[in-house]
Design a protein around this nucleic acid. Structure first.
Lengths: 218, 218
DNA sequence: AGCTGCCAACCAATCGATTGATTGGTCAGT
DNA sequence: ACTGACCAATCAATCGATTGGTTGGCAGCT
């Protein structure tokens, strides 16, 4: 499509930005940011290379001087999103106080924080991954599985120690992960919550869900 | 695209079906079912009318004898999905034992059940709604808001009565709704859970999340 | 200063293929 | 003869991608 079909309604109020230090320099970075916005709003197949080029302010041919194909722009965004989340989860585990409860709270805060800080990136990484060919989706899927295992290990540890009262850690991990994932779909500066308020609330939800005693916030 | 880009990986093991009594008779119904499968796997913009016609086994021109445009096929699916969920939520509330805890459990069981019984429909209704024009998305969005209010009222009632220990019912309703919504993305016959096991587990999760005492299953 | 070589960035024009949609018409069942 | 279902052929428009070529700035040398 040449122009936007209609006014953005999916994520209009959210800033178009990537995590610090990962935006490529020059035009390549601007293409990535424009792709972030358009893919989030209209989807990968709903965005043409002319839409993308127009948003960047360049000719569509110039795109191919920076990316070999439209799909590679999406692939980079999807990978960046999964890398950012996994990095934050790992760091949260490292910095967390010992014990499954504190670790679970730290993981949930990190996940919610990542999706609240960069909702566009989280949305594209999750909702548009299916548009990638299997070989280009594989790295992100591998990262996603690793992130899932981080949460699952903490839940199993808590269950084994008797600190969590949860019958099925796999289902609990899925449910908790689902809560945080959806944050990217609704959180924004127009909401009456700060990112920390949502992160703390969701961490409490997760602890309650697994039947743990509340822990102090860090 | 003329043929499938790659083997289905999003929802390959899930049956392509609609709730009883809502499938139109004849070719119109077959178009709807084919759209359900293709839109779920490849997205609305990732599915051409030729893909759709080929899956039905008819010529692409014949589609226009049944639907005025490709978008109307999606619009009907999206509306069907939201109607089915809302209908089940209402019925669950009617049939539930009195009291906020039992009502919350019933709502969650109904939501999870709907998304587990018809994951393709739930996926299309939620993930492809953004591809609809505002006027055709409006009915589904209105239904979604009504469904949200059903859950919110129960949470507020439980909080007011002191049966739920939840600081922010709005955030809690969002979190609980997010859990169930995501079920459509992973549940299938290949999972080691029945739909009732997941529904019951998620109902318990929701009750734990709001700090309620467990209730007997219905 | 002036010249040369270089390179990232850029674009007009265009490719063949595919898009959503339309026409005029066929065909089986009643 | 009428009707609903269907299709071959085709439309203008747009798709992702490619070509050949231009631009402006900067480093190194004279």
């Amino acid at each position: 499509m040449t122009g936007p079909r209609w006014e953005p309604r999916r994520l209009s109020a959210v800033a178009v930005e990537l995590p610090p230090g990962v935006t490529p320099a020059g035009t390549r970075g601007r293409i990535l940011l424009a792709g972030l916005q358009l893919f989030a709003e209209y989807g990968f197949h709903g965005t043409s290379i002319r839409d993308l080029a127009t948003a960047v302010g360049i000719n569509s041919a110039t795109l191919y001087a920076h990316y070999p194909a439209k799909e590679h722009v999406l692939a980079e965004l999807v990978l960046l999103g999964h890398e950012e989340l996994h990095r934050r989860l790992q760091q949260a585990l490292v910095e967390a106080p010992p014990g499954p409860a504190a670790q679970l709270a730290a993981l949930v805060r990190a996940q919610v924080g990542a999706h609240a800080d960069f909702p566009l990136l989280a949305l594209v990484a999750n909702a548009e991954l299916h548009a990638l060919s299997p070989e280009r989706a594989a790295p992100a899927l591998a990262l996603r599985e690793q992130s899932r295992q981080l949460g699952l290990r903490v839940l199993r540890l808590g269950a084994d120690r008797g600190e969590f009262r949860v019958a099925d850690p796999v289902l609990a991990a899925t449910a908790i992960g689902s809560m945080g994932m959806q944050v990217a779909h609704w959180f924004g500066p127009d909401q009456p919550y700060t990112r920390d308020q949502v992160a703390d609330a969701y961490a409490d939800f997760a602890l309650q869900l697994v039947g743990a005693d509340p822990v102090q916030k860090g």
